[in-house]
Design a binder for these strands. Structure first.
Lengths: 333, 333
DNA sequence: GAAAATTGTAAAAACGTTTGCATTTATGAT
DNA sequence: ATCATAAATGCAAACGTTTTTACAATTTTC
């Protein structure tokens, strides 16, 4: 019934100053005498006034809200990035509008539209490769965008990644070096440039340097899930491979258990290197050797980069590559 | 430079109707002649007009946005709930403002304040037990609230859960029935009513019915994480227990690996039942027997309940209990 | 001690919608 | 045709802020 919202106007009246002055106090504008500031603050306290962010957003054209698109909340890889994003966002007083957008399901554009309608100040994309329509939509809105763990082949948007080519190359070399003649490459959609261009290139480069012929039948394209990993084990085993580089931990874990349950000894009879170094690699037995990506940092740096863009600060590098390494555990000899 | 935002006013002028009519068309108000609707839609298309959700929110007092508080994004339990929440929210055209609020770190109230400032239409709480100050804050804002996987001891807010008392009781009985005389109870903060009241009560009820004395030294309080599970294994083993009910999967998995790595055979020498039936239970070896909670559904139902509250619909049951079961895998005899 | 610069405050115009009310136009029964 | 009624539209006032402009009061400068 009684709405009872205390507005800036009530505060102004009670403190016998103008709305403008109250606004200045609330926003920390220095142009207000200490004693008036004091007086206003007292009234704010007394009336328990809370500024309305919606009205503020309308008047100032800034919502202090950023949109975050995530392909799968329950995939710990993305969740880890999200945590980095969230922490930095909080640090800079931004709220996050989170939306899951399964690229596969063409949801991206509609989700994006609803987020842009909310007038977010910026946008972080994870995982989803940007379609042309998506890109156009972003362009027209002029909203700053940063990709986290996602590359932009056109190199126009901000992005934070590791050097996938180098990382996969090292992993592959590692497997070749222990005498594996047939190393499989098990990955997600090759239409995603990270897989189809970067990682694949690293894989091929390692083979080529080791003078091993590239054999397309050793490349396995599937999806990032535990089930997919279990399911594909047999095929990989039958291909004659004795080792595999796998580009997602859930996938790798499913794969590993497929091997375990099929009584193949890891790493004696088959070696595995996975890619994300999430908690999963430590949970399974044997523990998985993995490319280590600084997941939290990828998210955190992406968000930090976005804050700079939103502030129109000078950006030294809008395409950043964070360092990676390989953590040896027990799925390799 | 040129802001170039197309407003409802531009559309009105171009279509030679009033703003009100355009607004009606956009909002699907039936009070507009089909041919005017057509005309307006054409202009909207032509001008590529997009309504500004912030202005809309200010004028209508509805933001079609809900706040979601999550204790830990990377804990798959919460992430699973969140997925249910997200799907239903999308279905009903709500956006989600996600904020992680580590109850431990007293962040809850400040996060809540920033979310409420954004004028969300409703709020979903996960995991965090509501402090008095939080509750007061919610009350004053009059925002509808639903707890997902979290109980309200005062039973004032909406909530969606399973019957924790019954579930833990069944799990404990199961372990007692295979001859375990000392069954440990390993859980998170006992200050959380779910643990300290409900689950503990179920545990005690099972003991009591089996005429086994309750022994406080078999109750282990720790936190929901893999590391905590690894760390606590030794103490539990030393307590003389030969079985344990564990209330979080990450915790249970750490515990299991503690046992594995300490060369205790599961389930021959020690039985384990965990509580959330997430993917983790299937990933480890042996697979974990678990209480099965409908995680996705808890989130989905919570969000659905919230939509009803936001619409001021009649609510038949604001405290809902979803069914649970026990899934037998290989960590029990 | 007057002119110039600075500071503090108020008034009012945005911001882009929705919505209650008034008005016009169409519909149908007589 | 006529009138009562219903349907469609327009007008203008919110919504709760920020921001621009203007001016008065104070401080500085020489």
């Amino acid at each position: 019934m009684e709405k009872q919202t205390i507005t800036i106007y009530d505060v102004a009246r009670e403190a016998s100053v103008s709305m403008a002055t109250v606004s200045r106090v609330v926003n920390g504008n220095p142009n207000v005498r200490p004693d008036t500031r004091e007086k206003v603050l007292k009234v704010i306290e007394k009336l328990d006034y809370r500024p309305n962010a919606v009205a503020r957003g309308l008047a100032s054209h800034r919502t202090t809200t950023v949109g975050v698109l995530i392909p799968d909340l329950t995939n710990i890889f993305y969740a880890s990035l999200a945590r980095g994003i969230d922490d930095v966002a909080t640090m800079y007083k931004y709220n996050i509008i989170l939306a899951s957008a399964d690229a596969a399901k063409n949801k991206v554009d509609s989700v994006l539209e609803s987020i842009l309608a909310k007038q977010v100040d910026g946008l972080i994309f994870m995982g989803t490769h940007l379609s042309d329509s998506t890109r156009k939509e972003l362009e027209r809105s002029k909203t700053p965008v940063v990709l986290a763990g996602t590359v932009d082949p056109l190199d126009k948007l901000g992005s934070v990644n590791i050097d996938y080519v180098a990382a996969v190359k090292e992993a592959t070399q590692r497997l070749l070096s222990t005498g594996n003649e047939h190393v499989a490459f098990v990955t997600g959609a090759l239409s995603d440039p990270i897989n189809g261009q970067y990682r694949l290139k690293g894989y091929q480069a390692a083979l080529s340097e080791a003078k091993v012929a590239y054999d397309e039948s050793l490349v396995f394209e599937t999806e990032y899930s535990y089930r997919a990993g279990e399911a594909i084990w047999d095929a990989v085993k039958r291909s004659g491979a004795t080792a595999a580089v796998i580009t997602d931990d859930e996938l790798a874990v499913g794969f590993l258990n497929g091997a375990n349950d099929g009584h193949t000894n890891i790493p004696e009879d088959f070696e595995i290197i996975t890619s994300n170094n999430t908690m999963l690699t430590e949970i399974v037995r044997p523990k998985l050797t993995s490319i280590a990506q600084p997941l939290y940092d990828i998210g955190a740096v992406a968000m930090r980069l976005l804050t700079k863009m939103m502030n129109k600060e000078e950006i030294e590098q809008k395409t950043v590559l964070l360092p990676h390494s390989i953590i040896t555990r027990n799925s390799t000899k």
